[in-house]
Amino acid sequence: MNAFVLLVVAITFLKGFIVRRKSYGFVASMIAVIFAILMTLVLLAVGSFSYGILGYLALPAFIWYRKNIEQT
């Protein structure tokens, strides 16, 4: 199921590129960051690692989209 979340994020990003709408990238990066936070909590709670933590890499993207979204 963790892989499923990452897949959803990836496809959402992809759709954003295809239809050229920033909204998809914005939401995808937001989900990625939320998921990364959750996976960090999981790591702290039970010590199991998930690649979901890499979602933090989407943080700059999220910030960029948040700044630029209003002039689509």
Partner: peptide, 11 residues
């Protein structure tokens, strides 16, 4: 913006 994605037909 949110609705475009959250209510996307496929996603």
């Amino acid at each position: 913006v949110f609705d475009e994605v959250f209510m996307d037909r496929h996603l």
